[in-house]
Write a protein that binds this DNA or RNA. Structure first.
Lengths: 350, 350
DNA sequence: CTGAAAGCGCTAACAC
DNA sequence: GTGTTAGCGCTTTCAG
């Protein structure tokens, strides 16, 4: 393992020319005669020369690198988003530095500061939790930044962003249940103060009032800390009974994992889905199609969210003007929701 | 957006000292008087100075960056592995550059070459498909490299690696089915020539012969190309009927996604799992616990694989001697496998 | 204790 | 066409 890598100088010495000639030859500068150009390239190949991107970056002040912060890499939702990001980044010749924040504001900021030190060309932050106090700090970094599904209201105005229309999603979910004849519809949410949770809840309320239905019991899991959220599956599992006791026939769940938890609870309690209870999830992660029954859910175009955010960043890097995007989720109807059966009094049942 | 960032020079000018004094002060060099040290640090803070990691890297020839190649970021297995990698990398002060190869050797090599140009301190490659021809090319890069679940036999000797014992896994799966009384056991594999597929198959054969059972029809899904593998779920779905026709009562599936496909096929065909047929998966991804019935599966310690590989790379960077690791998978018994019921002739059934 | 100077590997004016 | 030189931002001898 030779520590000292071979440089443009080494090639120059061997070729009996100056290092700048080598540089020019390697970059196909037309001012060098085609003949020596080829010779030098050949020599470089023989010597296993690999250009030093660090040195190039120092000079050009472009690292061809972007930083990405997500809450968790193992989360299927963000994994898919990052997949999209990486695809368009790579096809544009950019590499992706990935960091996980685990929903912790401090970690999120640390990651961004790290990106700043590394002089990445741009930053993508998913599910940002950063509040007002740190916003200015970030804003003054003045590095092209695109937020994905930002979780704090003020940010969307200060930064570029691509977001999903959570309110529309909530509305679609509930409208679907209403169209199936459900009248007693609950919401099973999570306990943090994230914007997405609040807006999905708002959509729920809107759809109900438009259907002239009064909101049923809204159950929101309460976690100890604002930032520390218990496993979504556990939340769904624990909270389902409350809604059932309240007599709902349909439930809109904050996301697919919560819905899966609810589904598990139903299996345990002998409640059959969708006969006794209709369930609607959110996100459209792969898992949602594989549980029994497969989940009716509000899909986010996860790959598109990633691609779109990365494309926006690319435009920003080329000094183009960009407009924030709000993508629309859509309903995918599967087995976990069904028409409300007319209540048959028990004595008529076998 | 000021293009020119503030540098150590700018601080020096304002402080009326030389840039080297500033550098020393910032790095807590004891040779600088504590007083001016503080003053300079304060000034740096006021001026929003952020050290340029690129310049530092050029000098130190360390980038504090490692490169990671996986087949797909969205694959739940690798997502979990990367989560582990990122955790220990970050706690060691290293950043992670992530690249997806999509099981394509060319892309894998391109990613590694890119890492080489960027002068990352080390490389982690998961599920490597690189064959002999390119191995030397990679070997001469002479960059600390750790392979994770390498898919080509020769590699394990030339490079450092952490791997799962696939043969043991296959053996455990089949032994489990045997212990439940199954005698007609099939294998549902995938069509590529990956080492993992072959070794799980080997484990299957070993367990059968140790139990004095003759290998039942071994069905391996065939995909068009060696490298292009159809969706694992689809493979499971399509191949299941073949095994059923062959009269098996238990099936060991290449991985959990294949098993899910098999499960879906069973639901369609009215075969109940585990009453009519026992299913065992491999990997232990989250999904496996949420389908109905939850999958009995051979778990890989995914997080540990990632952490372990990264730790090995860390050791390599400190010139420690390291030993390759082979981790053991373990059985997690859930609802998809059950004791073989004694065959009751049809005429006695209601 | 502090400054001047060299150099990490590369690109791009500017000379010849 | 090709070489010389400066400089990207930083760390680190080496003098003083």
């Amino acid at each position: 393992m030779s520590k000292r890598r071979i440089s443009i100088q080494d090639i120059a010495r061997r070729a009996g020319v100056s290092h700048s000639t080598v540089s020019r030859a390697l970059r196909d500068n037309s001012v060098i005669s085609p003949k020596v150009r080829e010779e030098i390239k050949q020599l470089a190949r023989e010597m296993n020369y690999v250009p030093n991107a660090i040195a190039q970056s120092l000079l050009s002040s472009r690292t061809n690198t972007i930083g990405v912060v997500v809450t968790s890499i193992a989360d299927p939702f963000f994994a898919e988003v990052v997949e999209g990001i990486e695809q368009v980044a790579r096809s544009a010749g950019l590499s992706v530095v990935l960091s996980a924040s685990h929903r912790d504001v401090e970690e999120e900021i640390a990651a961004i500061n790290n990106f700043n030190r590394r002089r990445v060309d741009g930053i993508l932050v998913a599910d940002s939790r950063t509040g007002k106090q740190h916003m200015k700090q970030l804003a003054q970094i003045a590095m092209p930044t695109v937020l994905i599904n930002s979780q704090s209201k003020e940010q969307s105005q200060m930064f570029h962003s691509v977001e999903i229309d959570d309110r529309l999603g909530g509305k679609l979910a509930v409208e679907h249940l209403v169209s199936l004849g459900h009248k007693r519809i609950g919401y099973l949410g999570v306990g943090d103060h994230s914007k997405s949770n609040q807006q999905r809840l708002e959509g729920y309320r809107m759809a109900l009032s438009e259907a002239n239905l009064s909101p049923m019991s809204v159950v929101v899991a309460i976690s100890d800390e604002d930032n520390i959220r218990a496993s979504d599956v556990a939340t769904g599992q624990q909270m389902l009974p409350k809604l059932v006791t309240a007599g709902v026939t349909g439930i809109f769940c904050y996301n697919d994992m919560v819905a899966v938890g609810a589904l598990l609870a139903c299996q345990e309690l002998g409640i059959s889905v969708p006969q006794d209870l209709s369930l609607v999830g959110f996100d459209g992660i792969a898992l949602s199609g594989y549980v029994t029954p497969p989940l009716t859910t509000i899909c986010q175009p996860m790959l598109e969210i990633g691609c779109s955010a990365m494309q926006m960043l690319l435009d920003l890097l080329q000094e183009k003007t960009v407009e924030n995007r709000v993508l629309s989720p859509f309903l995918v109807q599967r087995g976990s929701s069904a028409a409300l059966l007319p209540k048959v009094p028990k004595q008529y049942l076998i």
